[in-house]
């Protein structure tokens, strides 16, 4: 099981012929993930690592069964790519691209919402389900098992790099990952921690979730509210990075574009307090995640 991606997932990669995308295609295939088609306009008929390339998503969908799309196109082409994927009825879209103009992001998210499509990202490292050996994106690189081994712990992270590091913590605790999701470092993203906690709640293979949070946005505050409302009843272990930013002048970005405290909102200390009050295990030190996981005795 796991969430979002599983043994039925069949993937199309938009922008498959790019440098980064071809490397990721190779790593995904090597891991056993079914990448069934790629799209790069004008490059139809070629192949990348044996995956056929088409000029349009429509053509790819006529020739293959596809239910998930991974977007690797440059920022200026993302909105068009989303329109094309949505128009062809694909319901899961992972947007890897970083630095997409905010006006385009607003439109992408609205178009997808109206069509009932789920977007992960933008600016995400991807999703991985180690049990089914499905990964979408660079997540895990070519050395997946270093961090991601199968298990019962869900991982949600606002940071791509910290998705791997957090999965590594899970591994150090003697456990493994059901599904790990880099939700994206931007302030505007398609799927928030609350959206994903709702999915983890229903997944029988997930027995606890670890969440890596950052300053800015209200995603962690919303997660606390969601837990209090009974939406997520499994153990949640949370770590919020960037406490030092509270002592800096407001309105300054540190790290990801989303990591900005504005109008008194988005302070790590507030996030930690609310999560703790909601019953989550909040790690003061990142390494405490291991201690909390061991104490849950999930083995």
């Amino acid at each position: 099981m796991g969430i979002l991606v599983n043994s039925k997932t069949k993937i199309l990669i938009q922008g498959i012929t790019g440098r980064e995308a071809s490397m990721v295609t190779r790593h995904m295939l090597a891991y056993g993930t079914p990448v069934v088609a790629g799209v790069t306009p004008g490059r139809g008929g070629q192949n990348v690592e044996g995956v056929p390339v088409y000029d349009t998503v429509k053509e790819a969908c006529l020739k293959h069964e596809i239910n998930a799309a991974l977007i690797y196109v440059p920022p200026a082409a993302v909105y068009e790519a989303v329109l094309e994927i949505v128009a062809n009825g694909i319901k899961l879209i992972v947007i890897i691209t970083e630095n997409i103009p905010q006006h385009d992001v607003m439109k992408c998210l609205r178009v997808a919402k109206e069509a009932g499509c789920r977007i992960i990202g933008p600016n995400t490292v991807g999703i991985i389900n180690p049990q089914e050996r499905i990964k979408m994106g660079a997540i895990g690189g070519d050395n997946v098992e270093r961090c991601f081994v199968p298990g019962c712990v869900g991982v949600i992270s606002r940071s791509g790099g910290m998705t791997a590091e957090t999965a590594h913590m899970v591994k150090m605790a003697g456990l493994g990952v059901s599904t790990a999701i880099g939700i994206g470092g931007d302030p505007m993203i398609g799927s928030t921690p609350v959206d994903l906690l709702a999915l983890f709640e229903k997944d029988p293979d997930t027995r606890a979730v670890v969440m890596f949070g950052e300053p800015g946005t209200t995603y962690e505050e919303d997660a606390a509210e969601f837990i209090t409302a009974g939406g997520f009843t499994k153990p949640l272990i949370a770590f919020i990075a960037g406490r030092f930013t509270e002592d800096m002048p407001e309105g300054t970005v540190f790290g990801h574009a989303g990591a900005i405290i504005e109008g008194g909102k988005g302070k790590p200390s507030t996030k930690m307090r609310l999560l703790r009050e909601a019953g989550a295990f909040v790690a003061e030190n990142y390494d405490d995640i291991i201690t909390y996981l061991r104490e849950l005795k999930l083995n």
Binding site: S157, R158, S159, G160, G161, M162, E165, G185, F212, E214, P215, F239, A241, G242, R243, F244, T245, F254, G255, H256, A259, N285, Y286
Partner: peptide
């Protein structure tokens, strides 16, 4: 390294 990692390291160092 990393948007999130650097936040964590700065806190840890302090």
């Amino acid at each position: 390294g990393g948007g999130g990692g650097s936040l964590l390291c700065y806190d840890a160092l302090l």
